[in-house]
Computed example of a mutant assay.
Amino acid sequence: MRDLGAYLVANTASCTPHSTLEVIEAAVAGGIHWVQLRAKDESAREFFGLALAAAKLTEGKAELLINDRIDVFLAARAAGAAVSGIHIGQKDVPVRLARELIGQGIIGLSASTPEQIAQANADAQFINYLGVGAVRATPTKKDHPTPLGLDGFAHRASLSDLPCVAIGAVTADDAAAIRTAGGAGLAVVRPVCQADDPRAASALLVSAWEGAK
């Protein structure tokens, strides 16, 4: 899992003018292999239903991760959905407990400070990758940490052997810099979720990442 490549965070509040499911379907068609479903405003039942529908679109084509809600992930998996894992943050349950709860599955963890990355290194056996940011300020996550910039991302990525995915107002234009910094991928919200043509936007991200090798 050293190269996660172009990674979509399908944030339900950001998907316009298309629906979240339309965006996910288009992103997968555009070549994206990692999709994180983020639903901050929906109820557990709504999130669960969305996860089931999203899994039908990603199954066999992309990894589908559930943001924060371990209960939703477990319910979706119990219902037979092809959900791959979870992505959690610093305010969620500790990764050791998350691993105990989900067993087999992917766990991504958001990390920003050297202290958070040091703790992640100590817990590396429970974690598959880190989401490192915010590279730049972003309106899609109002509680994001102080922006790191690309140089700051490079420094943080150098502190861990875990794959580090850059997130926070990054675009296809940043692919080469993120790769040079040792990044394992770039995660986006608005460049795909709010694109007029999410499939074309996804293909552009994939092409930029692959072209930056």
Rank of each mutant, 00 (worst) to 15 (best):
A10I: 01
A10Y: 00
T12L: 10
A13Q: 15
T16C: 08
P17A: 10
S19N: 05
S19T: 15
T20G: 14
L21Y: 01
E22F: 03
E25Q: 14
E25P: 06
E25T: 03
A26G: 10
A26K: 04
A27M: 01
A27Y: 00
G31Y: 00
H33M: 09
V35K: 02
V35N: 04
Q36K: 01
Q36R: 02
L37Q: 07
R38L: 07
R38D: 08
K40A: 13
K40Y: 07
K40S: 14
S43H: 00
A44W: 01
A44S: 05
A44F: 01
A44M: 02
F48E: 06
G49F: 03
A51R: 01
L52D: 08
L52W: 05
A53Q: 02
A54S: 14
A54R: 07
L57T: 02
G60A: 10
K61E: 10
A62G: 14
A62S: 12
E63C: 13
E63A: 14
E63N: 14
L64P: 12
L65F: 00
I66G: 06
D68G: 10
R69N: 11
R69V: 07
I70H: 07
I70Y: 02
D71A: 06
D71N: 08
V72E: 03
V72F: 03
F73K: 05
L74P: 10
L74H: 10
A75Q: 01
A76L: 11
A78S: 14
A79P: 10
A79K: 02
S84E: 08
G85H: 02
G85D: 03
G85C: 08
I86P: 05
I86Q: 03
G89Q: 10
Q90Y: 07
Q90G: 11
K91G: 00
D92C: 12
V93M: 15
V93W: 11
P94F: 04
R96P: 04
R96H: 03
A98P: 14
A98W: 04
R99K: 12
R99A: 12
R99S: 04
L101F: 02
